[in-house]
């Protein structure tokens, strides 16, 4: 139980007494109170727990917090300094993507990761990048559109 040091959404966080094997998901949710990142399966199948580490999408349910070396971005870290939504979040609101909304933090983080590495994804790129995220409510059609809309607005 060494001291855990994490950079989360641009802030340095230090935690003591956290079990070394604790997945990042539960450190975020239970220790840091960042509950936007969701628990769906715990075995890297659904993507509900997706966060970014140095811009890359990671399944936080299966990633020990103690192994994180880079900067973590969670859904709470996407909006601008004055609370303005980033283009992905804005597209999600404008297109009314969510049904229950439970998967959407993970979907948004996966979309954000895609657009950071590929500003102009094709339909096939979107399908492939988002294939790791389950939406039980079946909002894939809107997610597809929202990713394209966000890509267009980011470029604008």
């Amino acid at each position: 139980m060494a001291t855990l040091r994490l950079n989360v959404n641009g802030e340095q966080r230090t935690l003591d007494g956290v079990d070394d094997a604790t997945p990042l998901l539960w450190v975020l949710r239970d220790e840091l109170g960042l509950v936007g990142t969701k628990f769906g399966c715990g075995i890297s199948q659904c993507g509900a727990c997706t966060v970014l580490i140095d811009g890359n999408p990671v399944r936080s349910c299966s990633f020990p917090a103690a192994s994180v070396a880079g900067e973590i971005t969670t859904i709470e870290g996407l909006a601008g300094p004055n609370g303005e939504l980033n283009p992905v979040q804005q597209a999600w609101v404008d297109l009314d993507v969510a049904q229950c909304g439970y998967c959407q933090a993970g979907q948004i983080m996966a979309a954000e990761a895609l657009l950071r590495s590929n500003a102009n994804p094709t339909d096939a790129d979107v399908d492939q990048a988002m294939a790791g995220n389950i939406c039980r409510c079946g909002t894939y059609i809107r997610i597809r559109k929202a990713v394209k809309t966000a890509a267009a607005n980011r470029g604008a």
Partner: peptide
């Protein structure tokens, strides 16, 4: 658009 959408995309506690 859904009334909770803003909170959903910000990851606010809802569920």
């Amino acid at each position: 658009t859904g009334v909770d959408n803003d909170a959903i995309v910000r990851g606010e506690p809802l569920f």
